[in-house]
């Protein structure tokens, strides 16, 4: 668990980059930090691995202040993907990936094994091992950057706009892959992005920052359902209701099934989003049965979905 406790950062030139931010990243969860450029995301994140020294406040990892930990040990135990990727151009891909294991003194065999395992995980062919970063595409380089951060199996990974420099299609692909990877791991992740869609997609919780202040810290569907103020609502965008439909699952709104109702031809799963549900309803009419493990567990109608968006929309505009 990472705890930021009233942290503040004032740079030498007087810029207040982070102003009294407190937030907790629970064990094994992904928190996305999102906000416009210059709002203090990178600064907030780099205070965790002490690349940025804290002016006031404290950061604790599993209850222990990072000020009490040796800074080199601290960093070797935290994976870090920097905004510019920053692969070592003079090292092969294998050397890049195994840099932290190398610093920690792993033997060759163990490093090799780990490299192969990670290449598989990030879906790169084994023969990139001996290549140099310059020979890789942007998407491949980003993958290697992520693998390098995960190499020594850290409990915490900090990712600063890891997919920022990619075209939308590759970015989407990498996001999905990373969500998959993340499911298998138990890593606590802080993920910086300026893209609200990415923040909503990747985060178990989303922290919205503005001018160095934490504006709202909530699960994606709560952020979408009840943006705290106009800034957050505007940042989410005009298509807030659509995003909300993507973020809420059928399980959360479904009603008890009608007795004796069959599964029908094309039933919903409880883990489908309301967006999927609505699309089916438009095609097939409502109510639609919800089926899990071959059993009808509920049903959803258009009105149920409408109720969700209505309720949450009215909450915003009080």
């Amino acid at each position: 668990m990472i705890e930021l406790d009233n942290v503040r950062k004032v740079y030498g030139d007087g810029t207040v980059a982070v102003d009294d931010v407190s937030l907790e990243v629970p064990e094994g969860e992904t928190v996305t930090l999102v906000g416009p450029s210059g709002c203090g995301k990178t600064t907030t994140m780099t205070m965790v691995n002490r690349l940025t020294e804290i002016t006031e406040g404290d950061v604790r990892i599993d209850g222990e202040s990072i000020q009490d930990t040796d800074v080199i040990d601290l960093r070797r135990n935290i994976g870090y993907v920097i905004q510019e990727i920053g692969l070592f151009e003079h090292m092969t891909i294998a050397e890049n990936i195994s840099i932290v294991p190398d610093l920690r003194g792993w033997d060759e065999e163990r490093k090799q094994e780990r490299v192969e395992e990670l290449l598989e995980l990030i879906q790169l062919p084994q023969d990139v091992k001996t290549q140099y970063p310059a020979n890789l595409s942007g998407g491949q380089r980003q993958r290697v950057g992520v693998a390098r951060a995960m190499a020594a199996e850290p409990d915490i990974i900090l990712m600063d706009e890891p997919f920022g420099a990619l075209d939308p299609i590759t970015r989407d692909e990498l996001q999905d892959e990373f969500l998959d990877i993340q499911q298998k791991l138990d890593t606590t992740i802080m993920f910086v992005t300026h893209d609200i869609d990415e923040a909503l997609k990747m985060g178990d919780r989303v922290a919205v920052l503005r001018d160095g202040e934490l504006v709202q810290y909530d699960a994606p569907k709560d952020l979408l359902g009840s943006p705290k103020n106009e800034f957050v609502a505007n940042f989410i965008g005009e298509d807030r209701v659509l995003k909300q439909l993507s973020a809420v699952t059928v399980r959360e709104v479904m009603n008890a099934p009608q007795v004796g109702e069959g599964a029908g031809e094309n039933p919903l799963s409880p883990d489908d989003s309301l967006k999927v549900a609505l699309q089916r309803i438009f095609q097939q009419g409502d109510p639609l049965p919800v089926v899990e493990d071959g059993e009808v567990v509920g049903q959803v109608s258009e009105a149920d979905i409408q109720a969700v968006t209505d309720r949450r929309t009215s909450e915003v505009l009080q």
């Binding site: 691995n49 920097i82 070592f88 840099i99 610093l103 951060a149």
Partner: peptide, 24 residues
């Protein structure tokens, strides 16, 4: 960016010099 990555991944000043800066 390489220097920052090296430092962020836990290189000491010496490691940064010999593993990253001098080779580059």
């Amino acid at each position: 960016s390489m220097v920052r990555a090296g430092r962020g991944l836990g290189m000491t000043d010496r490691e940064l010099l010999f593993k990253v800066k001098i080779p580059m």
